[in-house]
Amino acid sequence: MTIRPNRLVADVLADAPATLRVLLDFHMRCVGCPIAGFHTLADAAREHGVDLDRLLAALHAAAAMPAIGMVPPTAAGARTIERG
């Protein structure tokens, strides 16, 4: 996935959940922020005083990593409920 400066923060988080850790590591309070659906990554970096190029590089690295610990409930041995 290509992460560009004009992408909305909320869209990046939805498309690549691993990027959440990056935003927290950069001390950005975008996670759960109601403005995340309106702010681009460039906006957020400027508001938080974060170097945009460093942020984008870290977001790309996180988005490229395989999701760890995200196992669908049925694959994790959850019981199914039969109705009848």
Rank of each mutant, 00 (worst) to 15 (best):
D51K: 06
L23I: 08
G37T: 12
C33R: 01
G77S: 12
P5E: 08
P66A: 05
L23F: 13
A61N: 05
A63E: 02
G69I: 15
H39Y: 08
M28S: 04
F38I: 14
G32N: 01
C33D: 15
G69W: 10
R4Q: 15
G77R: 10
G69N: 14
D53T: 11
T19R: 03
H48A: 06
P72F: 10
L52E: 05
T80L: 13
L55F: 00
R83M: 14
H60N: 11
L41G: 00
P66I: 02
L24D: 12
R54N: 09
P72A: 13
D43K: 06
P66K: 04
V22L: 03
T19S: 00
L24T: 15
T2Q: 13
V31P: 03
L8V: 15
H48S: 05
A75Y: 13
V31E: 06
E47D: 10
P34C: 09
F26N: 02
A44W: 00
T19W: 00
P66D: 06
D51Y: 04
H27K: 14
R79N: 12
T74Y: 15
R46M: 07
I35W: 11
F26C: 09
A75S: 14
T40E: 06
V12M: 00
C33L: 04
H39P: 01
A16L: 03
T19K: 01
A63F: 02
D25V: 08
G69F: 12
G84K: 11
L41P: 00
L55V: 00
V9T: 10
P72D: 14
R79H: 11
L23R: 04
T80M: 10
P66Y: 05
A62W: 05
A67K: 11
M65Y: 02
R79L: 14
P72G: 08
H39T: 06
I68R: 08
R54W: 07
A78H: 13
L23W: 07
M1F: 14
P72L: 10
L23S: 06
A16I: 00
T74V: 15
L13C: 00
A67I: 09
A44N: 02
A42E: 08
D43W: 03
T19F: 01
A58K: 04
I81Y: 13
A57M: 07
M1W: 09
M1N: 14
R83D: 15
D15M: 09
G49K: 00
A57I: 10
L23C: 11
A57S: 12
M70Y: 12
V71S: 11
R7H: 15
A78G: 11
D53K: 04
M65T: 09
G32C: 05
L41F: 03
A61C: 06
A61W: 03
A16C: 08
D25W: 10
L8N: 07
C30G: 04
R46W: 07
L13V: 02
G69T: 15
C30F: 03
P5Y: 04
V22H: 01
P5R: 06
A64T: 05
T74W: 13
H39S: 12
L13P: 00
P5H: 03
A61Y: 03
L59C: 03
T74D: 15
A63Y: 02
A10I: 12
L41K: 04
R21K: 14
I35F: 15
H60L: 10
A42T: 01
L24K: 13
V22K: 02
A58M: 13
D15V: 08
A10L: 07
M65S: 05
H27G: 09
D25F: 07
M65C: 05
L41S: 01
